[in-house]
Design a protein around this nucleic acid. Structure first.
Lengths: 144, 144
DNA sequence: GCCAGATCGTTCGCACACGCACGATCAAAC
DNA sequence: GTTTGATCGTGCGTGTGCGAACGATCTGGC
């Protein structure tokens, strides 16, 4: 009598990966839109923010803090140094490492960029109520 | 007396974009790990899944359904056709479009790939309780 | 001292992801 | 019919991501 459980119960639209990709893309788009003037990508912003926060950091260590591969952080830092937002020096005690620090321009830029990041944050969460936002962020942190 | 409100209230770790990026990366990693044998990326899986579901679709239309740019879906479909999972034909009524359909191999592969996707889905949501999972997914859908 | 293993940063290759510009084609308006 | 505007797929440039391999360097144990 009873029909067997539907074998095709899979829906792409309910898949975490699909929803995460869409939400991630949406935020990236809002972020770029909010910061056209200085044109930092979300990734570059994350890296620069951390460099400013630390004042001084090793490249791979920084990468771990902002969830980027050594191969990835390398390109991000290269672009930030080309734009004069970060300087690379060396630790005489450890000749393997690259020591990163923000420049004056980097310190200035991060101020306005942070405001844009906050706008993008709010815009991305706009579809949710205040309670839902707090809940969503806490769940998202648990997924880390 | 009272200290001014902290001007540095911004924390990268509480930023939606940062958390979304980490969660997205985590799922992608779990997905690849769950499906090493057939080696479909999450993106390729989404596209192939939709092609199978539709049976027949136009390239850009498909891209819209799976949230991919025309420039992006082009590369994804190219790789799927190179692997013989999808065929490209043409609509004689509209010579602009590329009409996509799954091949036999594509239909076979999507079966096991779907199981892997479900495993990755479960693994990514593992840190959450059942209630939290449902809640998280519904909030994520609202962000779409 | 020396050697084994770890860590550092780089490079290559591949796969998304998107803006932009382009030629081709279709549809609608005239 | 022809023109106008939209849509289709493609190509290029740039940026993120990561696995794999590499040479250079540091560290521990011997």
């Amino acid at each position: 009598m009873s029909s067997p459980p539907p074998p095709e119960s899979f829906r792409l639209e309910d898949h975490v990966g699909f929803l995460l990709r869409k939400a991630y893309q949406r935020h990236a788009s809002l972020f770029l839109e909010a910061g056209v003037e200085h044109a930092l990508t979300p990734t570059q912003f994350a890296a620069l923010n951390k460099v400013v926060e630390l004042g001084r950091a090793t490249q791979n260590h920084l990468g771990r803090l902002v969830a980027m591969d050594p191969a990835t952080i390398q390109g991000v830092i290269r672009r930030l140094t080309l734009r004069g937002l970060v300087v690379r020096t060396h630790d005489p005690m450890d000749r393997r490492t690259a020591v990163l620090a923000p420049t004056e321009a980097g310190l200035i830029l991060i101020e306005t960029a942070t405001l844009c990041a906050q706008r993008a944050h709010a815009a991305a969460l706009a579809p949710l109520s205040d309670d839902e936002r707090a809940l969503f962020l806490s769940l998202l942190r648990k997924m880390g």
